[in-house]
Each structure stands twice: as C-alpha cells, then as structure tokens.
Design a protein around this nucleic acid. Structure first.
Lengths: 216, 216
DNA sequence: CGTTTCTTTGAATCCGGTCAAGGTCCGTGG
DNA sequence: CCACGGACCTTGACCGGATTCAAAGAAACG
C-alpha cells in the first residue's frame, strides 16, 4: 500500500465531521490502487470522503465479481467477520477515512453513536447485498443493465447521470460480459428508454419503460 | 400465521439455553408455513431450534430466489433494516425461537452478551451472502451444484449427507432450473465424484474432484 | 497526432433453458 | 397386499440468450 497517510490533526482540520471524528485517519489512494486485499484480516472500517471505491473478488482463472460501488459518505469494509472476502480498490483518486473498530470501544461518550453508525451501515450493506444477489440469480441481461442504470440515476439529482465505472466493472458487477452490457445499453438506447452522451453519461428518457424492465 | 405459540414458561422449561433465554418465545411451524413475509417490517429475530428454514424472494411473474437455508441453532431474520427483502418459510416442521430485538435493550446483565450474539450472526450472514453472490455471478452450473453439495457435506459428520430441500429449492438457490440441477447431479455422479442413495442423500466419493470444481 | 485503451458491433458457438415424456417414490384406499 | 394417483425427479430433443472470437470505431493520453 503506497497510499499517503495524512496526519490526524490535518485530517481533523479538513473534515471535523467525518463519521469517526477523532479516531479516524485520512488516506489518499490513486485510481486503481488497492485499499485492502481479499483475505486480509482487518479490524478497520472505512468511509469514502471523496472519490469512489469498488469491492471485488478475483478467481485464480481471472473471473471477477464486483461486490459493490461506494460513494462519498458511505462506509465499507464491514464484512470482515474474520477476513475480507472481497478486496477494495479506488475507482478514481480518492480520500478515505480509516478507523480502527476496536478503538471505538475506548471512545467514551462517542462510543454509543459510533456503534450505532456501524450497525446501521452493516445492516444496510446486508440489504444491498441481498438486492444484488437477487438480481444476479433471477434477472435477464437486459433487466440487469436496466436495474443498474436505474440505481445509478436514483443516486443523482438532475437528469444527467455520469457513470464512474468502466463497462468491465459494470459487467463484473452484473455477472455478464462487456459485450453483453454494451449490446443491452445500445438496445435500451435504440428503444428510446435512455440516451447516452458519450459512453459514460446518460439521461433517462422513459422512466416508466425503465421501471417496467426492472420488474420489482 | 396459524403457528402455535408456546407459553414462555414452557419454552424455558424445554430449552433453558436458547440464545435469547428469557426474552424468547417458542413457536411451531408446519412444513411450508410462512414464518415472516417479504416486505413485512419486523423488530424480531429468530433462531432455529428444530427443523430447517429457507428465506426466499418472489417476483410477480413467479421467478424465485432463495436467500439461504438455516439449521438448528442458527439465527435468521437479521436483514430487516426497515423491512424484510425476503420471506422465510419452514422447510420441514420446525420449532423456532422468536425474540424482540428492542427487548434486548432492557435485558440487564444479559444485554451485552445478546448484542454480541446478534452482531456475530449479522456479520456471518453478510459473509455468507457475499459468498452466495459470488457463486451466482461467476460460476457455471456445474460449479454451482458442486459448491452446493460441498457446503452441504461440510455441515455433516459422517459420510452420508441428506438434503433437506427439494430440487426446486436447490435450483432457486443457485439461479438455475430443476432440469439443469438434475443434469449436473447426474453428471457428477457418473463422473464418480459423488454417489446418490435415493434422490435426497449422497456421499462424496472423490473429495478432491469436488474441490477442484468448486474453484475457490 | 499517433498510440493505447476502452467500447461497440457482427458472426458463430455453446451453455443452460424450455418443452415434453417417462420414471421413481409414497401415501391412500380398494 | 397391491393398485392407483400425485408429487417430485430424471432424461431427451430442441431452442435461444449470452458468450466467444474477431474487427472496427471512439475516446483518453502523452
């Protein structure tokens, strides 16, 4: 890990309201850099301050599954019961707040609040993972891609949504190949459901049409 | 829910060491009966005492995804951030210990222990879900079925493993059809990897062959 | 402006799904 | 005790959606 650790005082000066306040340390990661490794045991918990992060799991033969994408303010790294099943990498250059879980215990009046925050993030993570699971198990390629776009669009205010990840990342999140993702995107576009502006930004033209494909 | 609620004193007499001790209530469910519904909000947490349970999610068009299977001593129902994304049904006749989460808070000296138990179960659940997610996204039909058998066999001591679920349940857990599951089982059997004794019990003949297919 | 990387599109292939038939296991009742 | 019926499981033939392989096009970068 070649990431740069900022001093705790600097961190506090820059963002005194990060989820972990005094016990967190800021770190910088360059795009593509690993934040933690698969099978690494860790007592750490992370919060995105700036940039975005993906968690992924790699098989020896190169197959990859992406767990999730994380954006500013979101916590990640909760799943380490004993060790991480997924690794985490910076999608873009980013700033991450890192805190030691065991430090929460010696945190006095903050303790209660911090435990609540971590608990909420963990159950939220579980819910998201279950949603993702369902999508992988029972949705067609077209429904998967439509769901993905819909989720991305919901994160944004304003009608233009920009994707922070590559087609390969989308494919590995959805359990598809890049070619299939690309084809489905073209199909959704020629069907008048969405419109792309360059390959990383799009606009939903027919929300109802998109919603129908998502099949909740 | 037509399940029968046993009195708390009866419950305590029958199993004084259930995870939730005093605050738990025993309930009986018949095979196939629903324990809680999809989208039901609940502050409850459950422990299998006897029998087995599956969680599942149904789409309006009939597609179903099974979340997981639960066996005696295991906790389930943790994912209700706000509401359940999956329903839970009894696979066989079973006895379930049900406790109110909010009751844990007023539990005196037991509180610490109970919170720890629930926390452990939740992170364990998250880890299992991630494992399952990976399987659905990136494994072939054969690898999925092999993984399923391996997991089932690991739960058991002695060489004969009995499956508590139908082929349909397996298929809906693995994101496949019953026909494909059946074909893969036949294939594993004719390849000398496993041997079935009736359609619900099997024995692993070649552990290394099975492990190779699981592709960790 | 050239090079590299990422994305799209097309054609051929293959894995898993669909449809259909037959088999097995069990419980019920004659 | 055996015959019948229904639920579950297996197998086969065919089909189709997603992958693979290949090439062209677009975008990012120095």
């Amino acid at each position: 890990m070649t990431a740069q650790v900022l001093s705790e005082t600097t961190a506090s000066r820059m963002n005194p309201t990060g989820a972990f306040g005094a016990i967190g340390v800021r770190m910088q990661f360059a795009a593509g850099e690993e934040i933690y490794a698969q099978e690494e045991e860790a007592d750490l918990i992370y919060q995105v301050i700036e940039g975005s992060v993906r968690t992924s799991r790699l098989l020896s033969d190169g197959r990859r599954q992406i767990g999730d994408f994380y954006y500013p303010e979101e916590l990640f790294g909760m799943e380490a019961g004993d060790e991480h099943r997924f690794s985490a990498e910076a999608l873009s250059d980013c700033t991450i707040l890192v805190a030691k879980r065991s430090a929460v215990r010696h945190c006095g009046d903050e303790r209660e609040r911090l435990e609540k925050v971590i608990w909420a993030a963990t159950t939220h993570e579980l819910a998201r993972t279950q949603e993702h699971l369902f999508m992988l198990g029972r949705k067609s390629a077209c429904e998967k891609v439509a769901s993905f776009l819909m989720l991305a669009a919901e994160r944004v205010r304003g009608d233009l949504t920009t994707l922070v990840m590559s087609r390969q990342d989308m494919a590995d999140y959805l359990g598809l190949t890049i070619e299939t993702v690309s084809r489905m995107l073209s199909q959704l576009q020629s069907g008048g459901i969405v419109e792309f502006v360059g390959c990383r930004s799009f606009r939903v033209i027919q929300p109802s049409g998109l919603a129908r494909l998502v099949t909740a």
